[in-house]
């Protein structure tokens, strides 16, 4: 079993208005089998024992599916290993890079205010979904699921888009802090399926308008989002979103500004 001593520079920030700074630590005898978060757990246990504040960070499933973990490791959103979330990064991946020194930072984007240390607020991504990122169906009123067959290639493509875990790495990696990949994935998932057609245009229009309103930047085709995305969401979906948007503008017959029908 390989072990190593690592120099850590961890971002510490007390709240949204604090300026923040890197704090230096040494992680001793780190085993290659540990996960990156377990290495931080150990650091935190030591800090607590010494009466110091542990590093705050978000995580939950630690299986790469909930989208809660969110760290920039040596400049890479979610670390060096492709298609892997922060929680699934293991120390051997860092050893493979030959790193003895590690800089850990939060997602940085104006739409994601830093709450503390590595914890950011990603409510803005939810707000984009609230702006029409759904199919309006009443509970209990659906017809039989097999009444409308969906060609497998279309179902598969919709699935590819639907695997987005809403982590926000695409935003963190983008020089413009754009949420285009996230938004496009949702629009494509629903817009590709026959069930999603009725609201397709209004959905695209509302969601993109919301994204702009929330202070995310525009897409200028850097492609950094696709590289950082742990689920391999393709940048092609952005092109598709732009086509839908164009159509929505052309066929615009005063698309309603939203709202479901519940009260």
């Amino acid at each position: 079993m390989k072990t190593k001593n690592l120099k850590l520079h961890v971002w510490r920030q007390n709240g949204p208005t604090d300026t923040g700074r890197f704090e230096d630590h040494v992680a001793e005898n780190v085993s290659e089998h540990m996960s990156f978060l377990e290495m931080l757990d150990e650091l935190n246990e030591r800090l607590i024992a010494d009466g110091k504040d542990p590093v705050a960070f978000d995580h939950d499933c630690r299986e790469g599916i909930c989208g809660m973990c969110s760290m920039v490791i040596n400049g890479h959103a979610h670390g060096p290993h492709e298609r892997t979330t922060t929680c699934q990064i293991h120390m051997r991946h860092l050893f493979d890079e030959g790193w003895d020194e590690v800089w850990v930072e939060p997602w940085r984007a104006s739409a994601f205010p830093i709450q503390k240390d590595l914890v950011v607020e990603r409510q803005a991504l939810d707000e984009i979904i609230h702006a029409g990122g759904y199919i309006s169906i009443r509970t209990g009123s659906a017809r039989d699921a097999n009444e409308a067959p969906i060609p497998k290639p279309i179902a598969d493509r919709a699935f590819d888009a639907a695997t987005c875990i809403g982590c926000g790495a695409c935003v963190a990696a983008c020089p413009n802090a754009s949420a285009s990949l996230f938004t496009a994935a949702k629009i494509a998932h629903l817009g590709l399926l026959p069930q999603g057609q009725a609201e397709r245009m209004s959905r695209a229009k509302r969601m993109v308008a919301k994204m702009d309103e929330l202070g995310f930047g525009g897409c200028t085709n850097h492609g950094e989002c696709e590289k950082a995305c742990p689920k391999g969401i393709s940048i092609d979906f952005i092109a598709q979103m732009n086509r839908d948007l164009l159509k929505a503008v052309i066929t615009d017959r005063d698309v309603p500004s939203g709202h479901g029908d519940g009260e």
């Binding site: 759904y134 199919i135 169906i137 509970t139 209990g140 659906a142 017809r143 039989d144 699921a145 097999n146 067959p149 969906i150 060609p151 497998k152 179902a155 919709a158 699935f159 639907a162 998932h189 629903l190 399926l193 069930q195 999603g196």
Partner: peptide
């Protein structure tokens, strides 16, 4: 009913080549 509800919401369950 759950399956009907989920499919109507756009849940992309696995499908056969015939689309079912």
């Amino acid at each position: 009913e759950i399956i009907d509800q989920a499919v109507a919401q756009g849940v992309p369950f696995a499908r056969e080549y015939g689309g079912l």
